[in-house]
Design a protein around this nucleic acid. Sequence first.
DNA 1: TGATACTTACCGCTTGGGCGGTAAAAACGT
DNA 2: ACGTTTTTACCGCCCAAGCGGTAAGTATCA
Lengths: 78, 78
Amino acid sequence: MNELSTVGRIVHYHRKRSGLSREALSRIAGVGKTAIFDIEHGKTTCRLDILNRILATLNIRMRLDSPLMNEYEASQNA
Amino acid sequence: MNELSTVGRIVHYHRKRSGLSREALSRIAGVGKTAIFDIEHGKTTCRLDILNRILATLNIRMRLDSPLMNEYEASQNA
DNA sequence: TGATACTTACCGCTTGGGCGGTAAAAACGT
DNA sequence: ACGTTTTTACCGCCCAAGCGGTAAGTATCA
């Protein structure tokens, strides 16, 4: 663990802070331990659903922001 | 295009709003057209790096939020 | 309406991401 | 120190995500 992506560091921090081993987290999240290992090591090519399960387990929310998001959300309530 | 994920709808909306065809977006973002097609159709198993390139091209930012994020960010400036 | 240009949908193929199993390394207590 | 338990790192296999090519569908002209 040295040189890595922001996501990886965030996952690592939250996992440690939750007192979970990779194995434990992988069981709870329902993903392989390798996925967590890879993500924490900065792999950016992981699958979105896998990452999402991990984030959900660690109580991390993924949000999308853009200048058009208000407009988009308004269009959804039509 | 009917029944799909939030991400897919957001991407679709921003692409249309940018006046880009899937082909054009795929060229600019440097990904295959199939990836964009799949994402807009609600595929949640796409790769993170692929999605990120698409989001970046559409000027959409991905943010991670959690109760511990402040604490995390503070720890990074150490 | 027929031709042209553009967009979307689908089909095989290839490559690499996710998986479990296992070895290596740390962190314990005694 | 030593053995035990927990955590981390790595390996090889399998399947599906991504790719380009192409067919099908739309739009927009004269």
